[in-house]
C-alpha cells in the first residue's frame, strides 16, 4: 500500500506547481520580495515556514471544533505568533548563532498570509493528518518559489551563491568579469523580485494553459 493515498499526495503536490501559493494564489508576495536577495535567506525562511505551517495547521485542526467562529482569526494569529516566539526563544537559548540568522524573519513569518490562509481555508475544516500534509505542501510550494527567486537574484545581482563567488571576482576582474560581465545591482532591489516572480508565472502559464483565466 502506498504511504499516501491519491487524495493525500495531491495535497502535497498541488501547491508545488498548479496551485502554488505565490504564483497562482498570489499570496505571501511581501516576504518573497523582501528576503530573496540572497539564497541563504530564502532557505532559512523556507525551513521556518515549513515548520510553522506544519505544526500550526495541526494545532488549528485539532482545535477546529472548539474555536469560536467569531474570533477564529484572532485565535489563528495567536497560534502562529506563539509558535514563532517559542521557536525563537528556544533557538536563542540553545542555538544562538542560528537565532541571529532568523531574527529578521520572525516578524515576517507571523504576518505571512499563506499561513493564515491555510489555517482558514483548510485546517479549520479538515483532520490533523491531512492538515499537516496541506501545510507542508503549501510551505514547500512557497519555499520552492522563494529559493528559485533567491537563486537568480543572488547569482545575477552579486555573482555569488550562498555567499560563495561562482562567477569570479568582480573587483579583481577574474572569471566571467574578465570578459566584461558586470553584476546587475538592480537584481538586489525588491522590484526585481516581483519581475522574477512575474517571469516564473509566465513560464508556468505558458506550459499549462489550464491555469490561464479569461
Amino acid at each position: 500500500m502506498a504511504l499516501l493515498s491519491k487524495k493525500d499526495s495531491k495535497l502535497l503536490k498541488d501547491p508545488l506547481l498548479d496551485n502554488n501559493p505565490i504564483t497562482i494564489q498570489v499570496l505571501g508576495i511581501c516576504s518573497a520580495l523582501a528576503i530573496t536577495a540572497e539564497l541563504k535567506a530564502s532557505i532559512v525562511m523556507t525551513v521556518s515556514v515549513l515548520f510553522v505551517m506544519g505544526v500550526g495547521n495541526v494545532v488549528i485542526s485539532l482545535m477546529r471544533n472548539i474555536i469560536p467562529s467569531k474570533i477564529r482569526i484572532i485565535v489563528q494569529l495567536v497560534v502562529v505568533a506563539s509558535l514563532v516566539i517559542i521557536v525563537d526563544q528556544v533557538l536563542k537559548a540553545f542555538a544562538y548563532e542560528l537565532s541571529k540568522t532568523l531574527s529578521v524573519f520572525v516578524g515576517l513569518i507571523i504576518t505571512n498570509c499563506i499561513i493564515m490562509g491555510r489555517f482558514e481555508a483548510f485546517a479549520l475544516g479538515n483532520g490533523p493528518y491531512r492538515s499537516f500534509l496541506d501545510g507542508i505542501g503549501n510551505a514547500a510550494g512557497y519555499g520552492f518559489i522563494l529559493i528559485l527567486v533567491g537563486f537568480f537574484r543572488e547569482l545575477l545581482g552579486s555573482g555569488t551563491l550562498l555567499g560563495i563567488s561562482v562567477l569570479g571576482d568582480p573587483i579583481a576582474k577574474t572569471g566571467l568579469y574578465a570578459i566584461g560581465y558586470e553584476n546587475n545591482g538592480f537584481m538586489l532591489l525588491s522590484p526585481m523580485a516581483l519581475i522574477v516572480v512575474g517571469l516564473i508565472i509566465w513560464v508556468q502559464r505558458a506550459r499549462n494553459k489550464d491555469l490561464i483565466e479569461d
Binding site: 528576503i35 529578521v104 537574484r153 552579486s158 538586489l188 532591489l189
Partner: peptide, 10 residues
C-alpha cells in the same frame, strides 16, 4: 544589526 534587509543593509 537587528533587522536590516538580507542581502542589502544586512
Amino acid at each position: 544589526h537587528k533587522g536590516e534587509t538580507p542581502g542589502l543593509g544586512a
